[in-house]
Design a binder for these strands. Structure first.
Lengths: 356, 356
DNA sequence: CGGTTTTTGGCAAACGTTTGCTATGCATCG
DNA sequence: CGATGCATAGCAAACGTTTGCCAAAAACCG
């Protein structure tokens, strides 16, 4: 469009390596080596080449490079369903953390959404098999697989996050869901609670299984029966956490012998649940203690401030990237391992000893 | 690794177009045309080719294609700073909406973070000038620019979102910040409020300027002086919304003649502010009405439920993608236009007439 | 049935890098 | 002083597609 006479010889097509070579008075191959390799070219020539490159505003073409070396520098993150829940920032935080680590390693992050349809699976497989991406971080329990192509044998390094998929042969970075819930349940028992209300995620979901497992372990350890806990929810996804909490408040209201402590599998559930039962006159923590999972910052500003188990999202993201980049470096596929990073309870006023 | 004798001739390198051609007994070029072009090849040959492709699990190499045609199918979204705020899901929602629309158009989404450092700017410029991306959606008021390369003259189609950058020549998809705040302020005035407290975003920030402008417009229209509103905040970024609210609660407590209505520029600010002033015995909406901006779902479950101006994030995302893909189709760069999608107030219990 | 048009398929040249191999220059060594 | 080695630079062949151009075949027309 606009021809500016000065230093930036901007053609609409952009400067090529050949242009740089010409300007610097060397061969193309020398330019390539000067820009990428370390000591392969004379320091003086390199300086000349760098100057020429800068003057032309030269940027190497990533696709040409990728084609030649057979590698891309793009990592794909496979997200299940929605990117956002009610108030939880888990996924965005993961994204942020992963992206940051990736960039430091010279990689770029591409988003892939794995919905329940075949289209999105095919899309992801095209990315994987089409050489577009160099590795994947997956936050879903289902590996895309269509028409005999499966992400599992794409040859790509894959790391699982949040879910333990080491059984499926994937390096997994997870938190100690079960243990964390067990500990907080034990603490509630220690405070004197004997009847529990559990707000469940989708039936069979990894997190729900683990977290509920934690509750049961604590009950058993304290000699309490499985009947001490009532489940609510179980049919909705985590992204509908608010709805689950609202529903659960209704369920709760109908109970004759009311539990004294609530364990919610996500902050969203806890937040909407608390809001609704308070409206019905239930006092927290007077009548009911509440604790939930995720560690959303907003919990601090609820009334009362909500106790929550904080997931170490940043650390998990970093760890996942480290593992992935490590795997990219190797030729060997390392045996699947679990990397567990501990969650920790942030105790706040929503927990107290039961009244009676 | 494992050689399976059956249908999936999976070499570690993957099937090539040449393999498909050989299996189908045609030339490479015919395969290319059969897979991409519409009517250029006989229906029967095409069927044979499709069968062969499927049998081999063939996936075209995206980088080779990209190199040849000089185009990628990746769109980059340039995000300023953090991906997550306190409880607001604006950015994740944008991401989700954009990604969804993009995939339908056959494009992929790459994330680029524009921090305040030169590294990230350079990174983005490399992406833009290196042919990696086909277009960009930017959520920042600053266009990356380093060493004479500037995103502005990268030749890429760019669409701005949330911020009006039509002055800088960018198509912009925005909401009516100013008007929405003006209307809600007017409504508060109508209810009888005369003294306002305004929780500000960072000084000079587009959204803050617009929203505060809306307040002032409403005041003026009602014949109230600019002194009717006190500002608090202004030095922190939106991502520290909770901190702003906490701070503002302190400021508020020190005022001798207290405002009766609060207008917060983000839900986060409102949430933490409300939490803190309630603790000091301020009753909402009895002593103080509160309204904020964003429309975070969590506002419904605050006590009292918070009135908030809901941004049409999904729609804006869709619109931005439509514009971008439109611009990609054209050779002409269309003149910069603003696309405004209206926000709307979700009225809840946090607003009432002032006491006296 | 020869000539003309239309369809269909193949050849080979791009696209912009990287990199193995070779050529050159220069210093070092016997 | 000739031979050997080492550093540096250049040539040209890849990488896996797409596509302009041409050839062959088929269909159509007079």
């Amino acid at each position: 469009m606009n021809k500016n006479k000065d230093v930036v010889g901007e053609e609409s097509s952009g400067a090529l390596m050949a242009d740089v070579a010409r300007l610097a008075g060397v061969a193309i191959s020398t330019v390539s080596r000067a820009l990428a390799n370390p000591g392969r070219v004379n320091e003086k020539t390199r300086a000349k080449i760098n100057a020429a490159a800068r003057q032309l505003g030269y940027t190497p073409n990533a696709m040409a490079r990728g084609l030649r070396v057979g590698k891309s520098n793009i990592i794909m993150i496979i997200l299940p369903g929605s990117l956002y829940y009610g108030a939880s920032q888990i996924i965005p935080q993961v994204l942020q953390s992963i992206n940051k680590s990736l960039i430091q390693g010279g990689y770029n992050l591409m988003i892939a959404n794995l919905d329940r349809d075949e289209i999105s699976e095919r899309h992801i497989l095209d990315l994987a098999f089409g050489g577009s991406v160099r590795g994947a971080i997956i936050l879903s329990s289902k590996l895309p697989e269509v028409d005999g192509r499966s992400l599992a044998n794409s040859g790509l390094p894959i790391v699982s996050m949040l879910l333990d998929m080491s059984d499926a042969g994937l390096q997994s970075v997870i938190t100690n869901d079960r243990e964390a819930v067990r500990d907080v349940t034990a603490e509630l028992i220690r405070l004197g609670h004997r009847r529990f209300f559990y707000l469940a995620g989708p039936e069979g979901n990894y997190h729900d299984v683990e977290r509920y497992g934690g509750v049961l372990e604590a009950l058993e350890a304290a000699g309490l029966s499985e009947g001490s806990v009532r489940r609510s929810g179980g049919h909705l996804d985590y992204q509908h956490g608010f709805d689950i909490g609202v529903q659960a408040a209704d369920d709760f209201a109908e109970l004759t012998e009311r539990p004294t402590a609530v364990i919610a599998t996500s902050d969203d559930m806890a937040i909407s649940f608390v809001s609704r039962v308070q409206r019905r006159g239930v006092s927290i923590p007077g009548d009911l203690s509440v604790v939930s999972f995720d560690g959303s910052p907003v919990c601090e500003f609820c009334s009362p401030p909500l106790s929550t188990i904080k997931q170490p999202v940043e650390e998990m993201g970093r760890a996942a990237v480290d593992l992935l980049l490590g795997a990219i470096g190797q030729t060997q596929t390392t045996a699947a391992v679990r990397t567990v990073i501990r969650s920790s309870l942030i105790p706040r006023e929503s927990i107290a000893a039961p009244k009676s």
